[in-house]
């Protein structure tokens, strides 16, 4: 399972990066602030440092475990490229939505996001897509604005519904 091996390596790389950041920050920023040494009161670096060492030891063990289990990784459900594309596209649309939410405002950003996600899911009836996305976005806005008194992002054009 090369894909699984790649994923395992990716997570191990992620943990290595976390460990590196902890040591790097302790050696630079913590030392500059004077919180990287001394007794338990002053040394704010001792706990994260201990955790980073534990992560390092666990990574070595995990690498060993991965090596011994390389041939016994159970096959996961058979995913097609189209399945991965669907999921990836959803994430991309969602990321764009989050990035544009404050500048476009809730009402301008949300309906297109829901429309796009439902389209990615496979819905092709445009009238249903349009009305469903409008109803979902408006009803969520109603609940949050009217019942929970949340001010949703208005955007550059200050668009809101005066309920």
């Amino acid at each position: 399972m090369p894909a699984q091996r790649f994923l395992n390596a990716l997570v191990i790389g992620f943990f290595l990066a976390v460990t590196f950041v902890v040591f790097w920050q302790i050696e630079t920023d913590f030392k500059a602030q004077g919180i990287a040494s001394g007794g338990p009161y002053d040394n704010a670096g001792s706990f994260p440092k201990a955790l980073a060492i534990i992560i390092g030891i666990l990574l070595v063990i995990q690498l060993f475990v991965d090596r011994t289990q390389q041939e016994n990784i159970p096959a996961k459900e058979n995913l097609l490229t189209s399945d991965l594309l669907r999921s990836g596209s959803m994430l991309l649309v969602f990321a764009i939505y989050l990035l544009t939410l404050t500048s476009l405002g809730y009402h301008l950003a949300t309906t297109p996001m829901i429309f796009a996600v439902m389209f990615i899911c496979g819905m092709r009836n445009f009238i249903r897509l349009f009305f469903a996305s409008l109803v979902i976005s408006t009803s969520v806005a109603f609940v949050f604005e009217v019942f929970l008194n949340v001010v949703l992002p208005l955007g550059l054009w200050s668009i809101y519904i005066p309920w």
Binding site: V18, F30, Q33, P48, L51, I54, I55
Partner: peptide, 26 residues
């Protein structure tokens, strides 16, 4: 091992911010 790594990651995240003892920034 994976569970311990995940738990340690959670512990590391909890250290981000102002240290309540030294008031240093981590």
């Amino acid at each position: 091992v994976k569970g311990l790594l995940a738990g340690s990651f959670g512990l590391i995240i909890s250290t981000i911010g102002t240290d309540s003892f030294s008031t240093g920034l981590r």
